[in-house]
Computed example of a mutant assay.
Amino acid sequence: MENYTYNSFVLQLEGLKVAEDSIFLVFFLFLFSYIVFMIMNVGILVLIFIDRNLHQPMYLLFCNLTVSDIIGSSNILPRLLSDLLLPPSERLIGYYECVVQAFITQFFATTSHTMLIMMAFDRYVAISHPLHYSSIMTNKMIIKLTVSAWGVPFVLVGILLGLTIRLNRCRTLIRHPYCDNASLFKLSCESVLINNIYGLTFTVVLFIASIGSVVLTYTKITVVCLTSKNKSLNSKALKTCSTHLVVYLIMSLSGFTAVALHRFPQYSEYKKLSAILFVIVPGGLNPIIYGVQSKEIRNFFIKMFHFQNILPSCKSK
């Protein structure tokens, strides 16, 4: 029989169920992933900041996606790593801390979509209206896109968490490796119909908006490429669109898997793993995919490598 504790301000995280002889292996795998993740994402931010050639709308918008990835991973992984080294009974978290983590978690997941919508718009303008690109993608437009990409998720997620914190709680166990909205409202013994309706509507609208923008963007870009005999334009379109599409598909597949497994309690461990991979995989691959495909970033590394080769020869003279 389940024990009920009403409105407790101390919650327990179930976390990952890992065999004792595998705890340190799993810990170092996640730690290594987090370190590599941070080096790549912070490195991309630094490159874009210090190299004026990268002060272009595409890279400035990409910075927003990178910042979102850093916030999302730092919100979850350090806490997850510390909990791995604790027995399940000691994986405790304050209610308000849990609410903040849940807000940042949902905020990060939502901004990942809105950032890619803004980047899709940028690619459409660059390929479909190249002569008017500089007049459309002005600094003012970049600020508007950035504010929208952060502001809309902030309001929507604020309402989502507001509906959750209004509920009385009768349970204390978070059946997840970290706090998110679904895990929080499942602590309540009250009706969560409104939460489910808003949450489902929120998810459907977000996916329709992101998928719709990507489909519309690529349809128009495809039409431009088919009607244009400019091989250089077509090559540029193929490279930039394939990069954006790969990032979008990875993020969408990871997010959809995590959301879908929430509906199947019998796959709880798979749900936990997919929720963690949703944080690590897309954000870890974004710098690689954009970095490899970007001529400007590749050239920066080539220049740096060439400079390091010249420097020792100059010192020896």
Rank of each mutant, 00 (worst) to 15 (best):
V157I: 12
V157C: 07
G158W: 00
I159D: 02
L160W: 13
L160G: 03
L161Y: 05
L161C: 06
L161T: 10
L161V: 13
G162S: 04
G162E: 02
L163V: 07
T164P: 00
T164H: 04
T164W: 08
T164G: 04
R166C: 14
R166F: 15
R166L: 15
L167F: 07
N168P: 13
N168G: 13
N168M: 13
R169N: 12
R171M: 11
T172D: 07
T172A: 08
L173C: 03
L173R: 05
L173N: 05
I174Y: 01
R175Y: 09
H176V: 01
P177M: 08
P177K: 02
P177D: 08
Y178V: 09
Y178R: 01
D180V: 01
N181Y: 15
A182M: 05
S183K: 00
K186E: 12
K186S: 14
L187T: 02
S188Q: 02
E190L: 09
E190C: 04
E190Y: 07
S191C: 00
V192L: 01
L193P: 08
I194C: 03
I194Y: 12
I194G: 04
N196M: 09
N196R: 11
Y198E: 00
G199K: 02
T201H: 08
T201F: 15
T201N: 07
T203R: 08
V204S: 02
V204T: 05
V205S: 12
F207I: 12
F207T: 07
F207W: 09
I208S: 04
I208K: 01
S210R: 01
S210T: 11
S210Y: 05
I211C: 06
G212W: 06
S213E: 08
S213Y: 03
S213R: 00
V214I: 14
V214M: 10
L216V: 00
L216M: 11
L216F: 07
L216H: 06
T217Q: 04
Y218M: 02
Y218V: 04
T219D: 07
T219W: 13
K220V: 00
I221A: 03
I221D: 00
T222E: 12
T222I: 07
V223L: 06
V223I: 11
C225L: 03
L226P: 02
T227A: 05
S228D: 01
S228I: 03
K229L: 15
K231N: 14
K231Q: 13
K231T: 14
S232M: 10
S232G: 06
L233E: 05
L233N: 02
N234I: 02
N234C: 13
S235E: 11
S235V: 10
K236C: 13
K236P: 09
A237H: 00
A237Q: 01
L238R: 10
L238E: 09
L238T: 06
T240N: 11
V247S: 10
V247D: 08
Y248L: 14
Y248F: 15
Y248G: 13
Y248N: 14
L249N: 12
M251F: 15
S254Y: 05
S254R: 04
G255T: 05
G255N: 08
F256A: 09
F256G: 10
A258D: 03
V259W: 14
V259M: 07
V259F: 15
A260S: 14
L261C: 03
L261K: 03
